[in-house]
């Protein structure tokens, strides 16, 4: 009986490692798609109006930073689990 409790606890430790991996992996899906859209649209805008490339690029970095914040919250959560 003691052995089965120890085994169950060992299994739980493994599950928490899987949970950590899943937490960050799932948190990165949305921002991944979002950053792709931001980058693609910025590229379109720069191709359309090359003289605005500087302004578009700095705005793009700001937008990426806000999108990335969600993935970073998932990254922090990984350490908190």
């Amino acid at each position: 009986m003691d052995g089965s409790i120890v085994e169950a606890l060992a299994g739980l430790a493994g599950l928490s490692a899987i949970g950590k991996g899943l937490a960050y992996g799932l948190a990165a899906i949305g921002p991944g798609i979002g950053i792709g859209i931001v980058g693609g649209k910025a590229l379109e805008a720069m191709a359309r109006q090359p003289e605005m490339a500087g302004r578009i690029q700095s705005t793009m970095f700001i937008a990426i930073a806000f999108t990335e914040a969600l993935a970073l919250l998932g990254f922090v959560l990984t350490f908190l689990i």
Binding site: A65, E68, A69, L72, L73, F75, V76
Partner: peptide
């Protein structure tokens, strides 16, 4: 809260 946290974690990560 979120602004300083993301600034720190982005650079570190």
């Amino acid at each position: 809260l979120v602004r300083p946290l993301t600034l720190a974690v982005r650079l570190f990560a």
